[in-house]
Structure formats: C-alpha cells, structure tokens
Nucleic acid binder design. Structure first.
Length: 927
RNA sequence: GCCUAGGUGGUGGAACUGGUAGACACGCAGGACUUAAAAUCCUGUUUCCGUUAAGGAAGUGCGGGUUCGAUUCCCGCCCUAGGUACCA
C-alpha cells in the first residue's frame, strides 16, 4: 500500500478518541507538566492555517513530554463570550448561544482533523453556566476583599471592618479611593448601614465608582484601556470618547508592584516583559505642593526629578485641571477660554499626533515656590495630561525638553542648576555634576540632592516621596448582553452580592440584544428579572477578560461543582509550565490573569505567585496574496485579457486579487481561473514561457484578499502530518511569516520516503530483523539527540530538517532494519503522530499506542567519530584554527608540538588537554 | 522620539558558548525511467574570474574595531517589523 494519509489519519484519530489516549490522570506517580494554549474565541470564519501554529507547537511539546515520562495536562476550550456573536445576534436576532455552539462545532471538527492530543474530557467554555458560575464566584471574592499594604496582600473585607470597629480608620494602610473618610471606631459604629457600605466600597478590590471611562457609542459599551487603540475600539475600529459614568472597576493598581516583581520570576520573551513593564509604568519620584495662598490651596505636582526643584520657573496645569477656572485672572480670561476651547475641539488623535507645536496660555496667577517662596507663574498647556499624575507639572526648562521648548516659546526664564549642564541648544537632564543656583543643595551630587530636598519638603509638609504608576484600575463592566451577569443587586442605590448558593446567576432571556429605550444595557429588557422579586440586578455584564483570567485553574478540575478547582488538583498541577499564544495579549489577558492569580493566592486558594512559568509567543502567520494583471483598454477600462507578472510592465494593467487556492507556486491554474467566475469564462492570457505567473504581496490573511488558506484543504491534499511538519518547517516559531504553500511538497515527500523505506516495491510492509550497521545506528542516534536538543529549545524548524537528513541517510543506506524503525517512529511521533502510530502498529507492537512509548536514549558511542567531536578541541575552545594558525595541514597532522609561547598565545595560560580530535581522528599534542 | 527584535543565495531559512557560512527545503537547469503524463530517482545550483576542469577571489545591510579567527562580540550609521508615546 502506498502512503495513504487519508485513511490512516482518520483511523488513528478515532483510535485516540475511543481509547481516551490523552486523558491526563490526577495521579502523583509521574512528574506533572502543564502545557497550555491560549484558548480561542470561536469566530464564525473558522480556523485558517495561521491559527493552529501555536497549537501544533504545544502539541509537539506535550507529546514529547509524555514520551519523556511526564503526566501531561494539555487541555483545550473556548473563550466563548464576546462581541462578534452578539453583533451577529443584533443583526439576525439569533441567540448568541446558538451561533456560539455552531462555531464551536466547526472549530472542534477542524481541530480534530489536525490530530491534536488534547484531553477533551477537560474542555471548558466560558459561556457555560457551570463555568461562569465560578467567574461570578471569583467576582464575589474580589468584592469581598480589600488590599492591605501592611501585609502586602488582599484580605477579606471582614478584617477591615473589625479594624474600623476597634480603632477606626487610623493606621489603615490600604489601597483605596482618594476620598476615604477619617473616623474613630465610635464614629464608624455610629454610621448607618448605608454610610458604612458606601465607605467600604472605596476599599473593595471590585468596586463601583463614578469614573472617566472609554465610551464607545457604536458598540454601546465602555472599554478597558487595552481595548482602545489610538482612540478607536480594538474590535470594529469605532471611535471612543471619554465619559464620566458609574462603573465597576478592579483595583489592579494594588498589584502594580507585585506584577512588576513577578516578571523576574517568569521565563517570558523579553519584548513581552518589556511591554508589561511599560504598561505598568512605574515612576519613582515625589509629590510636591506649590502653595496658592490667594485660594488657600496648593497645586500638587508629580515629578521624577525633585532634585531640580530650584530650576522651576513656572508651573503648568492640564487645561482640564479643576483649579484652572479659579486661578484665571480677569485680564487672562479671554486667552484661557480661547485656549481651552481650542484644545477641547482637538480630538484625542490630533492631540497625540501634534506633539511638535508648542501651545499654552498664562492664567495670570502665581503660586509660591515651596522652598524659596518666590512667585512662580501658572500656565496651562495641553502637553500636560489630566489623566497622569496629578494633572500638573513643575516646569524645569533646563532639565526637561518639553519645558525647555515651552520656555523658549513664551520667553520664560531658563535656570541652569548643575555645573555639568549644556543648555544653549536644548534641555540637559544629566545627573552627573554638582548643583548650582540651588540654595542649600549647591555643591551636592544627585543622590545627596534628592535625599536633602525630600527631607526639606517633608519638614515643610509640602512634599513627599511617591511612586506613580501609569497603569489605571481596570474598568470591569460592559453594557452588553453576551457576557457573565455580575452577581450583584441594588438596595438603596448600593450594591450587594447575591448569596453564594444562588450562583450561577443565569443570563436572562431578552427580546432584543440592544440597549433599552431609556439607554440601559440589554439586560434591562429582561422581564421580571429582579432579585427577591424587588431589587434590581446589575445590568452590565463582565468584560471578555473575566472568563479568561482564571481558566487554567478550571482545566485542573473542570467538573467540580463545589469549588472552582479542588485543593488537591491545584496542589498537584500548580501552574502552567508552558504557555503558548500571541503577543497581542501582552497588556490584556496576560496582565489580568496574573492579577487574578495573585488575588486567589492571597486568599489562600493556591500557592503560585505566577500562573505561567514559561511563555512563548508564536509569530503571526500572514497571508500571501496572489495577483493577476488585467489589461486595460485605451479608455482605461478593464478587458478580459490578463498579463503574466513578468510582462505586466509592457502593458497598461491593473492588479486584481486572485484566490490563492487556484495558484500553485505562483503559477495560475488557467482552467480553474476561468471556472471561478462567469465573467472570466472567456478570459484570455498573455503568457510567459507558456505559463501565467502571478504577482505576490504579504498582507493580513482575510477573505476580502482571497488569501485565506483553510487547514482542511491542506489536510485533504497532503494530510495532517504534512500540515503539522510544514507549519513547523516554515521558520522559527516566534517569528511572523507569510503562509506560502510553495514548499509543502518537500515535507510531503519526506513522509512518503519514511513510508517507502519500510515498504517493498509492491507496497507491502517489510522490515529486516538484522542487526543495524554502525552507520545506520549513527544516523538514528544523531536524530534522537538532535530532536531532543531542538525540542527543548523550541527550535522545531531545525528538527524537521534533521528528520529529513536522517531519512535521506537511511535511504542511501537502504536501511529497513526493525531496530532502527522502532526508535525512529517514537522520535518522529510528536511531529507526525498518525504515520508514526501506523508504522508502530505495523511493527506488531501490542501495547496499543505509540503515545505510551518511552523516548529512546541516544548512545554517544555512535557519535564519537562524527560531527559531534568535530573538529579540534582543546578545553572545548580552540579548534580548527589552531592548526591553521600554526600553518599545519589537518589531514597530515599526527602530532602537534607546541612551544610555550604558542600555548600562551592561544590558551591564555590555561591548562592544555593532551588529546585533540581532528576529523574524528585522535592526535597528540605535546607541549 | 523611545523600547524590543531582526537584516545571510532567486525564495523560506540553517550555522546552539567566536571556529569549514549557505545545512534542509522550495524553485530553477540538465538527466534517468515512461508511448506520454503523474510519481520516483540522479546531477548541478552564493557571486565573479577560469572555454570545461583543476584552481582562485569576493561574500552574512553599511563603515570601523577587538581576535590567530567575527553572521556571532564592541563602537558608529542605514533599513525593516512589532510595541509605545507630550507619562512630568
């Protein structure tokens, strides 16, 4: 029989499913290994060849780890709440659950075709009530907790209440809203229920507060910062505006520092770690107050260079700053109003792109310098952002380029404050020299200066050291239908949790998936949906990231009805050892997941500070579009004649996308092209060398560009094993690359070669029981070692090449030895599981599946006289060039005599080994 | 602007700690088998010089440097991709 991928792949996929081959046991005999893929949102378009890239890599690794004797957890599920299903529901009226179900079936079918070793018994779906029950439960814990800075962890709100009851608010060091009250224990006890709850809400980790949010009118919902890109929504690209609303938020900022420190504990790609660091944006600096005696208040600024305080020549407020109107003098009123008017008209986008123009206006008022007491002019300018720090800055033109430009433009003083500053052309922020013009700091260096100035400010009660973060608390509510209901009802306008035993709070049915006439979220349409028949439920739902911020725990114990995952399961599986997914989740999912993980740890549900130990970002697979060139008539109209790529410049043509599925190696299949559309039926071609060559371009893979390649089509033609090998062969896993089917024949040929090696001319399976030769063993053991080395460093593309080399060698040796095949198929199994299983069973193995086999150990004896000892090594360092430098011919050398001078020259005086290898030959070195 | 990654044949890419650059594959050219096609196999394929060959020279974005030796390390530039942006 020839290699028939179709029948044998179906056969083994069925075998694995029937035998639950990949079901992972919660046993303790074997060491555990948890390999996780970022679970997909099941979209209506199905999978294209780019989607499985990461899944294939993780599957190879999982299968490899199983062969290495690990109890591997490799699950898959669906992040099935989300916007597209809901948008579809709005258009068609079809319930999102139905759309979602259909999409999931399609996904499952496509995934199954690729032959993954997922443990499907652990499948989760975030939109399933048995799952979102626990998303709601975790929300309840977050609502019921506060962050204690003293213990540096989240604690149940009861501990805060008992503090209030015994000593009042004094001594509480919590992460909270800014407007918390000060009270004694007696005062607290005298508060009524409503006042107490209102106060506690300022401490809860999940809290409700009036805040400025990103409002997307087109989607009818608020969005988190990571869902907004340059002022437009990530999904759909609709404009987003700032709006004040009562909103649920998560106090993720409480964890800012731990999230930063945790990055040192994980093995993640550097760019990703860097992205999270920037997103968190820690700035160490100080808060400084500039008194404004006439208003009996202070302007508070945040600065990272408090040491430059004597260089302050003015203060700048954001145009939106609350003190602006009070500070503006009558003479300046026109100027300021005009300026505010102008900036408010600028869109967020304009304001960001226009960073070159210096603009601002003088309020007419002066503040007092906190130390010298001198008058400092107060300006407003849009380079100061209301949303960062305090919305006000102290301007030090000599040390900050923006302040410098501003000062130059408006002719404000520029004071040199360090003897090392060069400020003729631009600001100089260096910290090298000694301070000048700086009062008591004169002559000090940077370190001493900072300490001295902060001490002075604290003494004056006009400043203190302060750490500022760029990261904001995460908005948690969405005014949408297709998400988890928030398990909260309202009494007297205050939120209360429903009882735990009332979970899950099911998503109610609605007549339409649109906001109500009064502008309430779709859940406002649900009839008779009241808590205890009288209280209103929260009408917003949870954001998309709620369900994905803890799902790796659910896989550990997916059916548990008592808890989100049992203590035993969590203690055994701990955290994810290898996580594979795209880098687009750097500041969303991966941040929120770390946050919830830390929170759940604080409450004692598990012991892992970080959820994902090692993370790999698979590169995005882009589309590779093909083009045909339509000849234009003299009037510039399209004709029905198409010019081949190489000749197109000789004609007047216009490029058109052509379906990549009717193009092979950039050569257009003319018949299929004519059949593709009725108006092409009579198409004519201007060919080169008898062929029609298409042009190409790398673009995003999408339907509109006719460059979508469906894995099912590849599998139909070449098989799943070929697809798996080819996706790995395409290049380094982490690198973005265009999908190009041009090279796939190569790996397909490789599999056919493997097959033929152990089949005779008639196509019958045939192996020899003879003892393999040394050369045959060498070829085998080389691949055993190489595949293992490569897989451990996630270099899958090079090991596919190594397999090809190995099989080419075995083919040259005409090797069909049983002893070789037995081990070869095990090593090949992670990459090409179907053909390996088939050959394994043809070998007459009775233990059922190759998946239970053990990875072979390589024997170094076979490798000594090979490339591995290549070519000359002394202390593992000096190689071939030693001979070259001494002008010796490697082939002729039997013995090398080195003078002490040579040794010194080459070895840096280190001890010299007596033996070296030259092309596998051992020769002496005499010193 | 800043941060990060990268730049190697016609193409995808390999070279793991500084040690024969271009593995492997695609494509291309030539050949074998075949009535023919498909499939399969063999040979060649960085560039230039050399009629073929033997052989030689150059060569990993550009310019320098360290080293017996640099795709790899260092300095300065150019370009590409991703992220981020008046963050005080």
């Amino acid at each position: 029989m020839e290699y028939n991928h179709k029948s044998l792949e179906k056969k083994w996929q069925k075998f694995w499913a029937d035998h639950e081959t990949f079901k992972s046991a919660d046993t303790h005999e074997k060491p555990k290994y948890y390999v996780l893929d970022m679970f997909p949102y099941p979209s209506g378009a199905g999978l294209h060849v780019g989607h499985p890239l990461g899944y294939i890599a993780s599957d190879i690794f999982s299968r490899y780890k199983r062969l290495k004797g690990f109890n591997v957890l490799h699950p898959m599920g669906y992040d099935s709440f989300g916007l597209p299903a809901e948008q579809y529901a709005i258009q068609t009226g079809q319930h999102p659950a139905i759309t979602t179900e259909a999409n999931i079936s399609r996904y499952r079918e496509q995934l199954d075709n690729i032959g993954f070793s997922f443990d499907w018994s652990r499948e989760v779906r975030t939109s399933d009530p048995s799952y979102y029950k626990w998303s709601q439960w975790i929300f309840m814990q977050l609502f019921n907790s506060w962050y204690n800075n003293e213990s540096n962890k989240a604690e149940l709100i009861d501990t805060l209440v008992s503090c209030f009851e015994t000593v009042g608010s004094k001594g509480i060091n919590a992460v909270s809203d800014d407007d918390v009250l000060s009270f004694t224990a007696a005062e607290w006890l005298a508060f009524d229920e409503e006042k107490q709850q209102r106060e506690l809400l300022k401490y809860r980790i999940a809290y409700l507060r009036e805040s400025t949010v990103n409002w997307c009118a087109a989607l009818g919902t608020v969005l988190a910062n990571d869902e907004v890109i340059n002022g437009f929504s990530e999904r759909g690209g609709f404009p987003v505006e700032q709006k004040k609303m009562m909103q649920w938020s998560m106090r993720i900022t409480a964890y800012a520092d731990r999230m930063l420190q945790g990055l040192d504990l994980v093995d993640w790609p550097e760019p990703l770690v860097e992205m999270q660091r920037n997103w968190i944006g820690k700035s160490v600096g100080a808060l400084v107050k500039f008194p404004v005696p006439q208003l009996d208040t202070n302007i508070e600024v945040f600065t990272t260079r408090v040491d430059t305080i004597f260089g302050v020549s003015f203060v700048v407020l954001a145009p939106e700053h609350e003190l602006v109107s009070k500070l503006t003098t009558d003479e300046q009123q026109t100027d300021i109003s005009a300026y505010i008017d102008r900036t408010s008209k600028k869109s967020e986008l304009d304001r960001m792109s226009d960073t070159k123009t210096v603009s601002g206006a003088f309020t007419g008022s002066y503040a007092k310098h906190p130390i010298t007491g001198e008058d400092v002019a107060i300006w407003i300018a849009d380079y100061v952002l209301a949303s960062y720090g305090t919305g006000a800055v102290m301007a030090v033109p000599s040390g900050d380029q923006r302040d410098y430009l501003f000062a130059k433009h408006f002719n404000l003083p520029i004071v040199q404050i360090s003897d090392s500053q060069q400020i003729e052309e631009e600001a100089d922020p260096n910290k090298e020299g000694k301070y000048i013009n700086s009062d008591f700091m004169n002559g000090m260096n940077y370190q001493d200066g900072v300490t001295a100035v902060i001490a002075k400010l604290e003494e004056l009660k006009l400043g203190k050291a302060k750490i500022n973060y760029r990261m904001r608390d995460a908005i948690f509510g969405r005014q949408r239908y297709w998400g988890e209901p928030v398990p909260v009802y309202f009494k007297n306008g205050l939120p209360y949790l429903i009882k735990e035993e009332e979970l899950p709070l099911l998503l109610p049915e609605v007549d339409k998936y649109l906001p109500t006439e009064t502008g309430e979220p779709p859940l406002g349409r649900a009839e008779n949906w009241k808590y205890e028949d009288q209280y209103d439920y929260e009408l917003s739902t949870m954001p998309g990231w709620a369900g994905s911020s803890w799902y790796w725990f659910r896989y550990m114990d997916p059916q548990n009805e008592q808890t989100f995952a049992s203590k035993e399961a969590v203690d055994y599986w701990k955290s994810v050892d290898l996580y594979i997914g795209g880098s687009e989740h750097a500041t969303g999912h991966l941040l929120y997941s770390r946050f919830w993980n830390k929170f759940l740890k604080d409450l004692g549900f598990h012991n892992e500070e970080e959820p994902f130990k090692k993370l790999i970002n698979q590169g995005m697979i882009q589309g590779r579009s093909n083009f045909v060139y339509r000849l234009l008539s003299d009037e510039g109209k399209g004709t029905n004649t198409f010019v081949s790529y190489g000749l197109k410049d000789q004609y007047n043509t216009t490029p058109l996308h052509v379906d990549v599925n009717i193009v092979v190696n950039d050569i257009l299949n003319l018949e299929k092209f004519k059949a593709s559309r009725p108006d092409y039926a009579a198409a004519e071609f201007i060919l080169e060398d008898g062929k029609y060559i298409c042009g190409t371009e790398v673009e995003k893979m999408s339907k509109s560009k006719f460059n979508v390649v469906n894995p099912d089509d590849i599998i139909e033609t070449y098989g799943a094993d070929t697809l798996r090998l080819y996706e790995m062969f395409l290049g380094p896993l982490e690198q973005a690359k265009p999908w190009n089917t041009n090279g796939i024949e190569g790996v397909y040929k490789f599999l056919k070669k493997v097959w033929r090696l152990f089949h005779d001319a008639e196509g019958n399976f045939k192996v020899s029981n003879d003892e393999p030769t040394k050369a045959e063993y060498k070829a085998l053991h080389k691949i055993i070692k190489k595949a293992e080395d490569d897989i451990e460093r996630f270099s899958f593309n090079t090991s596919v090449s190594a397999f090809m080399i190995c099989v080419n060698e075995l083919t040259d040796l005409k090797c069909n030895k049983r002893a070789i095949l037995e081990q070869l198929v095990i090593v090949l199994q992670p990459y090409a599981p179907h053909i390996s299983e088939e050959l394994w069973s043809l070998l007459g193995k009775e233990d059922g599946s190759i998946s239970y086999a053990t990875y072979p150990t390589f024997v170094s004896d076979y490798l000594v006289e090979s490339e591995f000892a290549y070519p000359v090594s002394i202390n593992g360092k000096m190689k071939m060039n030693l001979l070259l430098a001494l002008d010796l011919d490697a082939k002729a050398v039997e013995e090398i005599v080195l003078s002490n001078e040579d040794v010194k020259r080459f070895m840096d005086g280190k001890a010299l080994k007596k033996l070296i290898f030259v092309k596998g030959k051992i020769i002496n070195i005499v010193v």
